[in-house]
Structure formats: C-alpha cells, structure tokens
C-alpha cells in the first residue's frame, strides 16, 4: 500500500464526508504536520506503479479522476483547499509529513490565495448556423456555383474569426471581475460533444461575493452577443493551485 494525496488544507478537523471513500474505495485519513493537513488514503501500490498501463484506459482514468475530484470538492465545501494533481502518491505517511513540512510556505501561499474564492469556467462556442448564411436558391450557372461555394467557405472562416474576437472580449470582461484568470486550450469536439467549435476555455478565480456578478455578466453576454457561452462552477481552485503564481 502507498499513500495517495488528494488535497492539502489547514484547520481541517475531520476527514471529509465522502460516501464512496477515496480512490479504489479506500478510507480517507488526515495526515497533519506543521499546521497543515493532507487528505490521503491508501491505494494499491501495484495499480500506481504501472501507470503506463492505465494511461489510455479512459474507464480507469475516469474512476480515479472522479474519486479524486469527489474528495477535493468535499474538502473545498467548508475549507480553503489546495488540490493536488491526479495520481500524486508517496511511499508512506512519513513522506507526506515531510512534504508538508518542507513545502509549508508554498502550500500556505496557495491556501491564502484561494481562500474565500472559487474557480469558474467559461467556455465559448461559435454559434450554430453563424457560418451558414444564405444557402438560398440554386446557383444559375457553374460559375455562380463556384462563387457561392467560395463565399460560403470564406463566411465560415470569418464566422470563426468573429467568434474568437468576441470571446477575447468576454474573457477580458470576466477577468476584470476575477482575482486571477487562466486559459485552458479549447477542447476538442469529441470531448464537448458539440459540433460547434470552441473558441474560449477560460478559468477564473473569483471571490465568492463576486460570483453572482460573473454569472450575470456571462448571461448578459450570451443574450446580447453572437457566441454561445457556457458557465461551469463553482470548482475547487484546480487551475490556480500552482506553486508559483
């Protein structure tokens, strides 16, 4: 058995309440050191030793990711939380204690930064049909057909460019309400399940008091603008837990 580390907090008094336990159903424990508490569970060493075998196994990744996420969320419900990356494992609890001790400052800095704040995600998509202007009647000649096709292709490119420009403006506006912001690469269509292209995949660290404002802004832009927006959250501050800001 080795020790899987989910998240670090301070003033955690008890193990977060997660019905299904941790990764692989393992019982959650707290490992405390230097005023910090790490939420951990035992995992099977074999499973994590040969991670290579699981790298392309979406079912395995999904179950570990969901368990990881469940624990991090549960901690974040009541406390400032510094989430760790998936599959962070140590040989034993002593190693975890050593890390808490030695990286005390980095953890504290992250916890200070995210305290009272949540991460929100904003995604923007090209609006369906934006590219398809006036398919209209049948071209009267071969030359007219080619011209119409050329215009349609250009219109498609232009629609994406317009959407990207608008998404930049949305990103800037949301960032202005946020403490920090970060851009994730746009997700592939096979992930989003949408046929429209994603043009923005932003993450924003927002004071809880400003969350309503962010929501209102996104709603407003979605109504008045010409791109589709999607707001997700609140998330634990995954995107803002980097050691170095």
């Amino acid at each position: 058995m080795i020790t899987y580390l989910y998240a670090v907090g301070r003033d955690l008094e008890r193990v977060p309440d997660v019905g299904s336990g941790g990764v692989g159903g393992g019982a959650l424990r707290l490992v405390g050191e230097a005023g910090l508490q790490a939420v951990v569970s035992d995992v099977d060493r074999e499973a994590f030793e040969d991670l290579d075998a699981h790298r392309e196994d979406l079912a395995w990744l999904a179950s570990v990711a969901r368990a990881h996420h469940g624990v991090v969320e549960a901690v974040g419900r009541a406390h400032a939380v510094a989430p760790l990356a998936l599959a962070t494992v140590y040989l034993d609890d002593d190693r975890v204690r050593a890390v808490l001790r030695e990286s005390h400052e980095a953890f504290t800095a992250v916890l200070d930064r995210v305290d009272g704040r949540d991460e929100w995600g904003v995604k923007a998509y090209v609006r369906p049909g934006a590219a398809r202007a006036a398919a209209g009647e049948r071209p009267s000649s071969g030359a007219a057909y080619l011209r119409a096709r050329r215009d349609a292709l250009r219109a498609g490119d232009a629609a994406v460019a317009d959407a990207e420009r608008e998404a930049e403006a949305v990103d800037a506006a949301v960032s202005a309400l946020a403490v920090e912001s970060r851009r994730h690469p746009p997700q592939d269509r096979s992930l989003t399940g949408r046929t429209e292209q994603m043009v923005l995949n932003g993450a924003y660290l927002v004071d809880r008091s400003a969350a309503a404002e962010v929501r209102a802004l996104v709603e407003e832009r979605s109504r008045t603008g010409s791109i589709d927006l999607e707001l997700t959250g609140p998330w634990a501050p995954y995107s803002f837990a980097g050691g170095a800001a």
């Binding site: 989430p83 998936l86 050593a98 990286s103 980095a106």
Partner: peptide, 22 residues
C-alpha cells in the same frame, strides 16, 4: 503527466527535487 513530480495541481515547484529523491 504521471511521471511528473507530485506537486500542486498546476505548475511544478520546489517539490520537484523532492520527488527526484523519492
């Protein structure tokens, strides 16, 4: 992604060296 250092969720930091030892 899995070989990397156990570090905070984004970015790698001073734990890198730590993990090298691990």
């Amino acid at each position: 992604w899995w070989e990397r250092d156990p570090t905070l969720s984004s970015g790698r930091g001073e734990l890198e060296e730590e993990n090298e030892r691990l």
